[in-house]
């Protein structure tokens, strides 16, 4: 049924506003195709791409040069936000139409999170700091009190307490317990650049943070305390981490020249899983919420791979030539009814 709907839409040329029979978690990436870029500062293609079972990677949404991530409102899957170089682009009709909801003050947006209990509360990280909307994205304000090095590529929200946010910045890991009004640094994690934050399901309390040269860090109490983990990653720049939403014992980190490391015991032990990767330079990782244990990885310009056995073997996932800024799953809505 779902595939039939997709095929119909594809036949109609509506790939920019693909819809599903039921809200469905779909693998997506925010990517720029830089490998073929010669004598030019412009990638040969860029934007959001979703992975469809019968079509592989397919462009989704407006064609925009710099897109870093995408997020869907957990309580309303017709509301989709794109983190773009231009700012934040929003759809409120499941991708049928789009609007840039920020102005010239907001640019180089890297990540967006939405309050699962109240979709009016939307938070975004950017190259210039953090912004917040309390009206669903209609208006935005800067929220950087307590943060000096504002460059940020990652922000996440505590699913147990949506007023609590964690953000990785150029100056370390920061926490806010009041929706971003004020921030304090979590000193257990070094003051270097925190590049990616991910957490498991709300019940697990498992969070991962990876850094630029300061290792990977694990929390088992929703980010309240942190311990170093994956020691074999050494001082590499770690760009990627993932926690299996179905089983928080499954963890993965990845980075430059270190490939992928996985753990199946909640971080007690780690295995180097780079054999079979097209490149040791890994930028993004994601576990499939529909398929426990299935791990996707994307390397710099060498495409995606996936593994069903914690990285022991890898299968080609396509997207050769892409630089992936983000890799994850979007719950996209049926908007055709």
């Amino acid at each position: 049924m779902m595939l039939t709907t997709i095929r119909t839409l594809l036949a109609l040329g509506l790939t920019g506003s693909i819809a599903f029979a039921q809200p469905e978690s779909v693998l997506f990436t925010a990517a720029a195709f830089t490998k073929a870029q010669k004598n030019s500062s412009i990638p040969t293609d860029a934007g959001i791409f979703i992975h469809l079972p019968d079509k592989g990677w397919t462009p989704y949404g407006p064609k925009i040069q710099q897109v870093a991530s995408a997020s869907v409102d957990p309580s309303d899957s017709s509301r989709i936000f794109l983190a773009c170089g231009n700012g934040i682009v929003r759809s409120t009709d499941g991708g049928q139409s789009w609007r840039m909801v920020t102005d010239w003050r907001v640019s180089d947006v890297t990540a967006i999170v939405i309050d699962p209990t109240d979709g009016k509360n939307v938070y975004a990280a950017s190259g210039w700091g953090l912004v917040r909307s309390l009206d669903g994205g209609d208006s935005w304000e800067s929220i950087n009190t307590g943060i000096d090095e504002r460059f940020s590529k990652t922000i996440t929200l505590d699913p147990r307490n949506p007023s609590r946010l964690l953000v990785g910045t150029g100056g370390g890991l920061f926490e806010s317990t009041n929706r971003g009004n004020k921030w304090r640094r979590i000193k257990a994690v070094p003051a270097g650049h925190v590049l990616r934050l991910r957490h498991g399901n709300a019940k697990s309390g498992v969070w991962l943070a990876v850094t630029e040269g300061h290792g990977a860090w694990l929390s088992t109490n929703s980010g309240k305390t942190w311990q170093p983990t994956a020691p074999s990653a050494g001082d590499a720049n770690l760009y990627a981490c993932a926690v299996d939403p179905q089983n928080a014992q499954n963890l993965a980190v990845g980075g430059w020249a270190v490939g992928v490391l996985t753990s199946t015991d909640g971080g007690k032990t780690w295995q180097q899983r780079s054999e079979g990767l097209p490149s040791p330079n890994v930028l993004t990782l994601a576990y499939d919420p529909n398929n426990p244990g299935k791990l996707w990885a994307a390397s710099f310009e060498e495409g995606t791979v996936w593994s069903q056995d914690a990285g022991a073997t890898w299968q080609d996932g396509g997207l050769d030539g892409a630089l992936t800024n983000d890799l994850g799953f979007l719950t996209l809505a049926d908007n055709t009814r």
Partner: peptide
């Protein structure tokens, strides 16, 4: 990113 920025600059 730190590890890609020089390479990407040198593309153009």
């Amino acid at each position: 990113d730190w590890d890609t920025v020089v390479d990407l600059i040198a593309r153009s």
